[in-house]
């Protein structure tokens, strides 16, 4: 969904896309979210996020996103491994992830993906529903 929205709306300058964390599936969800923040420290948040999504495992919290795997993905992505690992071990972005979780709780997020367009909760968050909602929002904001 994100890729299509970015290609068809964000890259054309019509929509702003904000990514936030909602790690609710266990400890490896937390670590994956923190690791994405660490990648962001090196300017590779989007690229590393895509790597994480491409490496999702069917068995959750079974080592698929262990610290060692996360560091290996960082290495694969060309990140500075030492800087990345230090960031992860220090838990440098734990509070950022917690901030996202707190905001999600306030806005009634229960699962993922959860999508809001101009503050309106979009459900279900499948591609066709999200694209239709974007078109409606744009029709209001860009009437001509």
């Amino acid at each position: 969904m994100k890729t299509v929205v970015i290609e068809q709306y964000v890259d054309l300058g019509r929509v702003r896309f904000v990514s936030r964390h909602f790690p609710f599936l266990g400890p490896e969800s937390d670590r994956a979210a923190e690791s994405a923040e660490c990648a962001g420290e090196q300017g590779r948040f989007e690229e590393y996020s895509e790597l994480l999504l491409a490496n999702q495992q069917s068995n959750r919290n079974a080592g698929g996103f262990s610290d060692a795997k996360l560091v290996a993905l960082a290495r694969f992505d060309g990140l500075d491994e030492i800087v990345f690992e230090t960031c992860l071990l220090e838990g440098r972005y734990v509070s950022n992830v917690e901030d996202d979780l707190a905001a999600a709780a306030e806005w009634g997020v229960r699962g993922t993906p959860s999508v809001f367009i101009n503050g309106e909760f979009i459900s279900p968050a499948d591609l066709s529903t999200v694209l239709a909602a974007l078109d409606r929002a744009l029709a209001v904001s860009e009437p001509n």
């Binding site: 929509v15 896309f17 904000v18 959860s114």
Partner: peptide, 21 residues
């Protein structure tokens, strides 16, 4: 807005909460 793509003054903003697992 740590991880936002697109113009800051866009009239439409999509916020997505996600889990990598």
């Amino acid at each position: 807005d740590r991880h936002a793509l697109g113009p800051a003054d866009a009239s439409v903003t999509l916020v997505a909460f996600d889990d990598y697992q």
